[in-house]
Nucleic acid binder design. Sequence first.
DNA 1: CTCAAATAATTCGTATCCGAACAATTAGAA
DNA 2: TTCTAATTGTTCGGATACGAATTATTTGAG
Lengths: 181, 181
Amino acid sequence: MRNVLRKKSGVSAPEGGGEVILGPGVTPPVPKSSYELRILQSIRRIIRAVEIHSHKLAQEHEITGPQLGCLLALAKGGPLTITHLARMVYQSPSTVVGIVDRLADKGLAVRQRGSKDRRLVQVCVTEAGEALIANAPSPLQETLAESLKNLPELEQVSITLALEKVVDMMEARKIEAPPVL
Amino acid sequence: MRNVLRKKSGVSAPEGGGEVILGPGVTPPVPKSSYELRILQSIRRIIRAVEIHSHKLAQEHEITGPQLGCLLALAKGGPLTITHLARMVYQSPSTVVGIVDRLADKGLAVRQRGSKDRRLVQVCVTEAGEALIANAPSPLQETLAESLKNLPELEQVSITLALEKVVDMMEARKIEAPPVL
DNA sequence: CTCAAATAATTCGTATCCGAACAATTAGAA
DNA sequence: TTCTAATTGTTCGGATACGAATTATTTGAG
């Protein structure tokens, strides 16, 4: 049930409308640097687009985006350990475990304990997995891939570099300032 | 237990190599446009950075990224319905319901049934919520915000436009080709 | 007026995601 | 050799995140 509403109902609707008129005291937004805001918003929209695409993939191809990503990494990089695979797809090992589970359930990949070091687990693609890859869609929106190709190369470069710059800034460790001298 | 390994062990590694030889019908690797690959990778890394940042937020400020995002949208846009809020933060209504649940559990926001149209639910920020916002961190990496500010404006513009271009390409509807007869 | 269609929020099922904690195994120091 | 430390994979808990189905409510056609 979740007892929607009902408690804390002490706050009654002040006035009737569905339309909300902003009150006076609302802080003037101060759009940060404006660029920051637009970048934040773009990132959120990109994340959403990726997830929606993944859901469509799941419906049409029996595989999700992250699963396809791992499968492709395995196909390209040969048998990989969980940790190594996680590093390839930029995800936490604990996340990859679940993805490999589902890949294995579907018979697209298999696990093999290392014979030398029994802690290691080698994951590799099965024939079914390679068959799926053969006529699988792009892990990214087709529309993005197409639109990108139709752009002048100069702009492709520009976009690529801009994204990588954002990555650098986001992943930058905030360790500095030890001596401060 | 999850019976790790052990079943389906019939598929033994065919040969030692990590290199995978593609079959005949398989499209030659063609590293896509290379740019596409780099963009895909950057996007994945950005998503991961956002998630890691959200976890840190949760530890240090008792609020996650998506929750903070919704709270800020509510503070800026006044009381909003679930659907409207979802549209503001670019998320599905079903997702926003859960986020508002947690926001309400923490006393940072409240729900109010519309008095006119009882289907509507107005969500608004409590005083505690506004207090949190007052000295809350950025929903995005501090390091990104700082690094961005230290960039020449020309580059800020370039990055902003590049990201928005990517969004456009990803969100582009693939509707055309209706008759095809 | 009456009932079907439309709308809003919610629930449900599934899949990501992460860090922390844990078990198994190996390597290295005493 | 023995026991501790490190490494690897896994599990666990919590939070997103989506679409599909459900419920409550309103609107509109007949």
